[in-house]
Simulated scan of single mutants.
Amino acid sequence: MSWNMWLAFLAAAVVIAVSPGPGAVLSMATGLRHGYAVALRAILGLQTALLIQLAIVVLGLGAVLAASATAFLAVKIAGAAYLIWLGVRKWRAPAELLDDGAEAREARGMFLQGLLVNLTNPKAIVFMVALVPQFIDPQLPQWPQFFIIAATMVGTDMVVMSCYALLAGRCRRWLSSPRMMKAQNRVFGGMFVAAGSLLAASSR
């Protein structure tokens, strides 16, 4: 992969990462609720899912998902249901500070939440099927190019999601009253439900 090609892909990766989506909502909500240390677990889950999605594309299974209406619908429904469930759960979360035990339990589940949020989004895989081949030079060995693409996408997304979480975390001290925490829960819960509803209504 040439430098010009890589820079073009980097620009595309930045645009994709910065675009608001369920991953950004999760990063901000977790950073605001728990701080960056816990949000990092969710972000690592998001990146693990991203690597799995890239592997699916490389192995050719992504093309099957893109071509099969049934497979796409099944993954889409699962993803939309999960996002809506997260939203309802967030909406109904108690507007109070968690004790140490509850905080630890929520923290342990953040990696899995991040993993599932990205992994159950079939549009991401279909998008990669359309995007990634355009940056692969067929005249050069392909596996090193796939490695560069994976490292670029994961690195870019990790930085952007970390920025979302850190910026949200800086607001924690001003939004720690029960009234403000209830408002946070309603805002982020609504955003998760909206993201799930949009996914459910989307097409390939």
Results as ranks from 00 to 15, higher is better:
Leu83Cys: 10
Trp85Thr: 05
Leu86Phe: 08
Leu86Asp: 01
Leu86His: 02
Val88Ser: 01
Arg89Val: 03
Lys90Pro: 00
Arg92Thr: 08
Arg92His: 09
Ala93Lys: 09
Ala93Ile: 04
Ala95Val: 06
Ala95Gly: 06
Ala95Cys: 09
Glu96Asn: 06
Leu97Lys: 12
Leu98Pro: 00
Leu98Glu: 01
Leu98Ser: 02
Asp99His: 11
Asp100Pro: 00
Asp100Trp: 01
Gly101Ala: 13
Ala102His: 04
Ala104Thr: 04
Ala104Leu: 08
Arg105Thr: 00
Arg105Ala: 04
Glu106Tyr: 09
Ala107Thr: 08
Ala107Phe: 01
Arg108Glu: 02
Met110Asn: 07
Leu112Met: 15
Leu112Gln: 11
Gly114Phe: 06
Gly114Pro: 03
Gly114His: 08
Gly114Cys: 11
Leu115Lys: 09
Leu116Ala: 08
Val117Met: 11
Val117Trp: 08
Val117Ile: 15
Val117Ala: 10
Asn118Lys: 05
Leu119Phe: 14
Leu119Ser: 04
Leu119Glu: 05
Leu119Pro: 01
Thr120His: 06
Thr120Arg: 05
Asn121Val: 01
Asn121Tyr: 05
Pro122Cys: 08
Ile125His: 00
Val126Gln: 02
Val126His: 04
Val126Gly: 00
Met128Trp: 12
Met128Leu: 15
Val129Cys: 05
Val129Gly: 00
Val129Trp: 03
Ala130Gln: 13
Ala130Arg: 13
Leu131Phe: 12
Leu131Val: 11
Val132Trp: 02
Val132Arg: 01
Val132Ser: 00
Pro133Phe: 14
Gln134Tyr: 14
Phe135Tyr: 15
Ile136Tyr: 13
Asp137Gly: 10
Asp137Trp: 13
Gln139Leu: 13
Gln139Trp: 11
Leu140Val: 06
Leu140Asn: 07
Pro141Glu: 07
Pro141His: 10
Gln142Ser: 15
Gln142Pro: 02
Gln142Cys: 10
Pro144Asn: 14
Pro144Met: 14
Gln145Asp: 05
Phe146Gln: 13
Phe146Lys: 11
Phe147Met: 14
Ile148Val: 15
Ile148Glu: 09
Ile148Met: 14
Ile148His: 08
Ala150Pro: 03
Thr152Arg: 10
Thr152Trp: 10
Met153Asn: 07
Met153His: 09
